[in-house]
């Protein structure tokens, strides 16, 4: 396989950012539990999940070497999360 330009970021930094994003996601879940900031919480969970997925794709799976594929995977996951979280937001529990 031909390899494109390698952009190596420190793995420990990637791991720390992933953990921090996970904590942010938990905060989003706490917000989504309430009534007033429910939509903001759901949006935060979706956004954090998208960023985590992109980091795993770019740095763990090394798709930063193939930016076109990275963009394709990111768009596909964005569309999936948008569909799922839009449904959850539009039909709240009674």
């Amino acid at each position: 396989m031909p390899h494109g330009a390698i952009r190596k970021r420190p793995l420990l930094l990637i791991w720390a950012v992933l953990m921090a994003l996970s904590a942010l996601g938990a905060f989003g879940a706490w917000l989504a539990d309430g009534e007033t900031l429910r939509l903001a919480g759901l949006g935060a969970i979706a956004l954090v999940t998208l960023f985590k997925a992109r980091l795993i794709l770019a740095d763990y799976l090394e798709l930063s070497r193939a930016p076109g594929w990275l963009a394709g995977f990111t768009v596909a996951i964005f569309l999936l999360l948008a569909m799922i979280f839009a449904l959850i937001a539009l039909v709240p529990a009674p």
């Binding site: 996601g25 938990a26 989504a32 999940t49 794709l57 799976l61 799922i84 979280f85």
Partner: peptide, 18 residues
């Protein structure tokens, strides 16, 4: 292994957080 990781991130957000 990273694919398993990636899929869990999505599963966790949908089943546990939303």
């Amino acid at each position: 292994w990273h694919m398993v990781d990636l899929i869990w991130v999505l599963v966790f957000a949908v089943f546990y957080l939303s």
